[in-house]
Design a protein around this nucleic acid. Structure first.
Lengths: 356, 356
DNA sequence: ATATTACGTGAGACCGGTCTCTTTTTGTAA
DNA sequence: TTACAAAAAGAGACCGGTCTCACGTAATAT
């Protein structure tokens, strides 16, 4: 039994050097692939390294070079298809450039986000991609910059911060989706988001701390206002964080004296929950109620009817964020940019024509 | 503009020590939380650290302690709900114990897996959880052991390796699912997996290099054999790796002179693809064909009809794997165990009764 | 033949922590 | 007041790499 479970002292350059009968510096040159070494010596060292099964200690390497080769990513919830797709985009880009990715979950919780950022800075990541849970609490992000660590914001923008950001065109997306429903004759439209809020009621749109949600709500309200509909925020609901909560939100919406006839879900998880709620209430889509969801998630294309969605090209967003961060890490001079990836409305069968 | 983008030399214990007018050792004691220091000095150091915004360099710490606080996880495909759920379980467990997780994708490709393992070992992870793409090529896993790094196998078992493993009870799960269909009168049953194989045809069950798939196929075949059905492997198909491939596989299955009346999908991604294939062929479930899928994925509960599934408790599997690995890292003496998490069949509406 | 240059190699500082060992300070008992 | 143990603080080696600098030798120029 050669393979032990006991932690063993690992083979170092010094060990290889000794075995190859050269100095530590020379062995390091060969093993590290830098400097000049004669072919003869190189072969000796390579051979010694092979027999000893030498593996460079990336930690030590990072220590002296000051680069860890790691990119930190803080997302709201990896289980959300939106984020896992984004992470895939980031990872693919990172691997191409020789970086590794560490993912941390914030659960959209500010304190978790702060400690995640702290942890990653401690691990000396070369750069950070963050989906800020709140756009109004940004001390920790300022510190990231002050620590000299490149930062890219994802999905949400913070104008006060002079930092690159990659987001969707949330306002336009919401406008397109809402307009689509209005054009089909809908006059009472609801917007449902998972964002936490006191009482699930909207206090003040301008105060929504998540810029993506805020812009979507703003777009939504704008269309309703333009269409001359009264009290456009009446059916805007937050707090659809899990199935019971969502059931509750939906139930209350529908028990309104004038219940909405169409519904816009802020992300695919909310969309799925809303779909289940409606299903459990025995409502049929789009006959009884119409809906549109953000994100082209798995489930949206296999339901009956398939769900009309806002296609967000999240993978591209992830790739772009990764690309941008890597450029920053590599000190390529760039002006701060806030990239908006445009979305498209994919018409399927979940919006019905209503009215006369 | 205090926040610069330029990499700055970071604040070290030495800096804090100087500011607090104490020795480096003393500052380190306070900052590192070890040894004894008088309250007065402690306060000085803490104050100095605060004003300088000191952040410990976790890399340097790992360097001298020999522990990185990082767990490496190599999975087949994070986009697959199975793995993302598992990763969540592992991460939750890890965070609880103060570990960070690095995830690497193998794409079920052996060479990618090898280089991922190599990379993680290089980063000096404290332990490794791997979903081996093949159970017959294990040199790199042997090396992991030889390097003294704790290893836990996930989802797939390798008897030749004296290593902890956490898997599902794949054989029993397949038996239950297959039996369910047989009991409903089905006599021609197909099994579809995404595993790559030459020609998508099964050469020899014993040769399937993925133990989970092998055991499932074995269970499947066992039930058919017990039921006295002829040529039980006739409808076993591999290679449903993407939608076009799956369309092809399904089409060929159904154009058989005696097409199958029921179908077992090896995982939720295959299940979804098969569902779409059937849908695009205009077949209705379960009237025209019955199906069961592994994993309680999102989409399985919102289709019409909802899909009967094998519930795998993947989150628990992940947690268990994490727990086990952490125990190993912490040198808790344990015998090698191969844990099997039992699954349950969740009856929904995708299996119809056929025959007389 | 001698001066100059380039090249290959070795010695050792350094990165930022931890930790052992030594020295100094403090408190208490004789 | 001196003696001595215990507590607190300091000095410096160490982890495993990178990298600068110094040095010796061989190749080229004069």
């Amino acid at each position: 039994m050669e393979d032990s479970a006991a932690p063993k002292r690992s083979v170092t350059v010094a060990d290889v050097a000794k075995a190859a009968k050269v100095s530590k510096a020379t062995a390091a040159r060969v093993l590290g692939g830098y400097g000049v070494v004669s072919d003869k010596i190189r072969d000796q060292v390579v051979a010694a390294a092979a027999t000893l099964e030498y593996r460079p200690n990336e930690l030590a390497r990072s220590m002296s070079t000051g680069r860890s080769g790691i990119i930190g990513v803080v997302v709201g919830d990896i289980e959300n298809a939106f984020f896992s797709l984004a992470v895939r985009g980031i990872s693919d880009m990172a691997r191409l450039a020789g970086f590794t990715v560490i993912i941390a979950n914030s659960g959209e919780q500010l304190d978790a986000e702060i400690s995640a950022v702290d942890l990653l800075i401690g691990k000396r990541v070369d750069g950070l991609i963050v989906t800020p849970a709140r756009c109004d609490r940004i001390d920790h992000l300022r510190q990231v910059r002050r620590a000299g660590v490149p930062l890219v914001l994802f999905d949400r923008n913070i104008p006060e911060l002079e930092v690159d950001a990659v987001t969707g065109d949330d306002r336009e997306a919401a406008i397109a989706a809402t307009r689509c429903m209005v054009e089909q004759g809908h006059r009472r439209l609801a917007y449902v988001s998972a964002m936490e809020a006191e009482g699930g009621k909207l206090a003040d749109i301008g105060r929504i701390s998540n810029s993506a949600v805020r812009e979507r709500v703003e777009g939504f309200v704008q269309v309703l206002t333009e269409a001359g509909l009264p009290n456009p925020v009446h059916y805007v609901r937050l707090g659809a964080t899990d199935q019971p909560q969502t059931d509750d939100v939906v139930k209350r919406l529908l028990s309104d004296s004038a219940p909405p006839t169409a519904l816009l879900a802020s992300d695919s998880l909310v969309g799925l929950r809303v779909f289940k709620s409606l299903q459990s209430l025995g409502l049929s889509i789009p006959k009884d109620i119409s809906m549109i969801s953000f994100l082209d998630a798995d489930w949206t294309s296999v339901t009956v009817p398939p769900i009309t969605i806002v296609d967000q090209r999240v993978y591209e967003m992830g790739k772009l964020a990764g690309e941008r961060l890597i450029a920053r890490i590599e000190q390529i001079p760039l002006t701060v940019e806030r990239l908006q990836i445009n979305t498209t409305l994919v018409m399927r069968g979940s919006v019905a024509r209503v009215g006369p």
